[in-house]
Amino acid sequence: MRTSLLAAFALCFLVVVAGCGVAGPTTGTVVIGVTSELLSGADMDRMRVVLRAGGEVVRDDVMTQKSGQLFFPREFFFSDLEDGTAVEISLEAFGAEDADRPLLVRTASTQVLGGRKLLLEVRLERECVVAPGAPTCPAPQTCVAGGCSAAGVDPRRLEPYSASWKADAVPDVCKPAGGGEPIVVVGEGQADYFPLEDLDEVQVEAGPQGGYHIFVATRIKNLRRSGSTTVVNGFVPDLGYTVEPLKVIFTLDQDEGGFCKLPGLRFRLDGERGIEELLGKVVEIEATVTDADGDTGTGKRKVTLSQTIL
């Protein structure tokens, strides 16, 4: 009798569970992955980014080359939103010559799928740059491959998000796939890279706003062209003097032999020490470059400061 009651109870429990079912995830994430054929600093100076979720603006700001924010590839997240929420990105790229008229406008939209983390790739293409006075794509269309297309993308067509998409998104002349370990070589030059050997003399120059400097240049391989941070450090052994570091984020220039270069790094020498104490002294220069992937390369060179000031 007892066994029969237990069996009946178990059967009823299974029926109830089967009847209720198990609810699936109700929230999801969409990652917008942005790449660009336009070079930051050369083609565009700033970019306005507007994100909308469910028709409401959730982000509206401007990224500039000067601040180091304007690099590609990069990601924008719509995280943990309800299933079916419409999400949209609007990008306006501006050149340095015209602060009011965008070079191009690119929009893209899709919907959140509950329990999924999706990648929506958006590319800023040269074919979509609009000449002054030329017509633009009528909303809600956007420019893709030089023509007007629908901005909306069916989320069922999107791939699952993986951080590895950035490595495959854009061939980088400064960081080709399988290129090897990062290489950083320290040289000199204001407008171009010129090689140095240890203890070569470099010219000390007076700065336009006070202070005295030398121009450091770097030659780089296997680090990203855009968004890489360069830090220059210096130490004068004879004086036990550490020069204040220089930190910049600039787009690299392509060079020969698979290398890229960054000339014109104005490295100020004086600070706690007057320039008279430094002339003719040896300075140990160290340049460290770190890209947006977190890869780092370091180059070192001992240079002799000139006895004169230009």
Rank of each mutant, 00 (worst) to 15 (best):
E284K: 15
A150C: 07
V184W: 13
T136E: 00
L14R: 11
Q209W: 08
A206Y: 10
A23G: 02
G258S: 03
E277D: 02
D80A: 08
L11G: 03
G21V: 05
F71S: 11
G299F: 14
F259S: 06
G274H: 04
E284M: 13
Q141F: 01
P160A: 07
R116N: 00
I285Q: 08
D192R: 15
L124G: 00
V185P: 10
L91T: 06
D270Y: 01
V204D: 08
A169Q: 00
V216A: 10
T288W: 12
V289I: 12
C174R: 03
N222R: 07
R219H: 12
Y212D: 05
D98K: 15
P237D: 08
D255L: 10
P208S: 02
G114Q: 02
I183T: 15
K281P: 02
G114M: 04
M47Q: 14
V186T: 07
V202Y: 14
T290F: 04
E276G: 04
D238S: 14
T85I: 00
G227D: 12
V243I: 12
L39G: 01
V186M: 04
R156T: 15
F215W: 09
G41T: 09
R59W: 02
S162P: 12
C174T: 05
L38M: 11
T251Q: 07
R219M: 09
V49G: 05
A7W: 05
D172R: 06
L39P: 06
R268T: 15
T142W: 01
G294I: 00
G21F: 12
F250L: 13
S164K: 13
G227A: 05
E286M: 14
C137H: 01
A10D: 04
L223H: 05
V173F: 01
S40V: 04
A18R: 14
R123L: 10
L239P: 07
T304C: 04
R123P: 15
V153I: 06
R126Y: 03
R74D: 12
C137D: 05
E37N: 06
F9A: 15
D43V: 10
T290P: 04
F71R: 13
S40A: 11
Q254S: 09
K166V: 08
T35E: 04
C128I: 02
G207S: 05
P195V: 14
